[in-house]
């Protein structure tokens, strides 16, 4: 075995590896500069929650706590109260006075969505943003009632 053979073999390997690198230089990168650029998700992707409203602007959620009961991780907290008949939040007598989702606990299983009798809580395709502290991962009712602002593109389903 000669030393030269080893050197040549080594050089060939390096050239091969560098070839991969060089080839990628000309290609479009996989990294998405999210959130500046949109991220592509499948239509049934389960992302951040949202509490839907009716077209009239009334909240759909009636504070029934069924989502809370269905959640396997205890991520949801609902505290209900009686609607003021003159100025109701939701149809009927009951509404959610407090509604919170703890995104650090949530496993995005969608059981809450499944349990809701009025299709109020839904998982959107939005991707939750990083936060500086744990408290900020608990979404309040006000945050949940807003459609999440998330730069996503829906991929066609394969």
């Amino acid at each position: 075995m000669s030393g030269l053979g080893d050197v040549l073999q080594g050089a060939a390997q390096i050239a091969g590896a560098m070839g991969v690198t060089l080839k990628q230089l000309t290609k479009k990168p996989v990294t998405v500069e999210y959130p500046e650029e949109p991220i592509a998700v499948f239509p049934r992707y389960r992302g951040r929650h949202m509490l839907r409203k009716y077209d009239s602007g009334m909240e759909r959620c009636i504070g029934c706590c069924l989502c809370e009961a269905a959640c396997p991780t205890g991520a949801i907290f609902v505290d209900a109260a009686e609607n003021d008949p003159a100025n109701p939040h939701s149809p009927g007598e009951r509404y959610a006075k407090t509604y919170e989702v703890n995104l650090l606990r949530c496993v995005f299983c969608g059981d809450c969505e499944e349990a809701c009798p009025v299709e109020a809580i839904v998982l959107t395709q939005a991707i939750p943003m990083p936060e500086q502290n744990r408290r900020s991962f608990i979404l309040t009712k006000e945050q949940l009632l807003e459609a999440p602002d998330s730069n996503i593109a829906i991929r066609p389903e394969a």
């Binding site: 504070g63 029934c64 809370e68 209900a80 109260a81 007598e93």
Partner: peptide, 9 residues
């Protein structure tokens, strides 16, 4: 107490 509880919780 109306609407302030669900029995299971």
């Amino acid at each position: 107490s109306r609407f302030r509880y669900r029995p299971w919780e």
